[in-house]
Write a protein that binds this DNA or RNA. Structure first.
Lengths: 112, 112
DNA sequence: GAAGAATATGCCTTGACAGGCATATTCTTC
DNA sequence: GAAGAATATGCCTGTCAAGGCATATTCTTC
């Protein structure tokens, strides 16, 4: 769970994942489409792989990366428990009010 | 979205969020229950607040922190589109592969 | 088996960030 | 208004991870 979040937190890795959401992709194409250097892409894919977010499949010299669904299912379950415990805050108005208060607080403390 | 993930990626912050899932909580109690130093807790809460994950409500000298639902709703939406495109992808996986091969063949024969 | 394509890895540098601690700030109570 | 509780902030340090680059590795094709 935490591993999944850590892997997804890095901006370029998130971009890679969102690209892979469309379709499986070889390293070179990822690098090209996201305008990243190939070594960095390989490293990011390594991290994603270690976290269980992607699978690799070799085709000739290429390596096709694709998303695994398991971690996303987990994340979904985790979110579900959250939704349950937060349903009592359904009214938007209450949210907006406390939001305004918090913002004021922050400004005040910064001496703005 | 990315901000939410970054905020959640830090292990102790994740613990704080999971604690707040139960009920709103003042800083001191968070520190005590998670066995963290108060300043670190305040700093983590600052990050969570900046990311819009929590709200603050002052009560006497205490500050009660509570989760906001909006970011989790967003995360949920994001995940939903993900699941959609992943099942779609799974169905068409083989098609995409042979498609790619065919494209390569064509490029090759053109002398690319 | 030599050349070249696609990818992975190792080393280095730098920036960001979490923890520790002291201290400032805010609020209450007397 | 002084004392003390609850919290925030500033500074310092160490660590870790991402980017850059060179190079190793693997596979294909001739």
């Amino acid at each position: 769970m935490n591993a999944t979040l850590i892997a997804l937190a890095e901006p370029n890795r998130l971009r890679i994942v969102e690209l892979l959401r469309e379709k499986p992709c070889p390293v070179g194409e990822i690098a090209k489409r996201l305008r990243l250097r190939q070594p960095q892409v390989s490293k990011h894919l390594r991290v994603l792989s270690d976290a269980g977010l992607v699978d690799v499949r070799p085709v000739a010299q290429q390596r096709i990366y694709e998303l695994r669904s398991a971690p996303f299912d987990e994340l979904d379950k985790w979110l579900e428990t959250f939704r349950r415990s937060m349903t009592y805050r359904m009214d938007r108005l209450d949210d907006l009010i406390s939001e305004r208060k918090a913002k004021k607080e922050r400004e005040k403390q910064r001496g703005d």
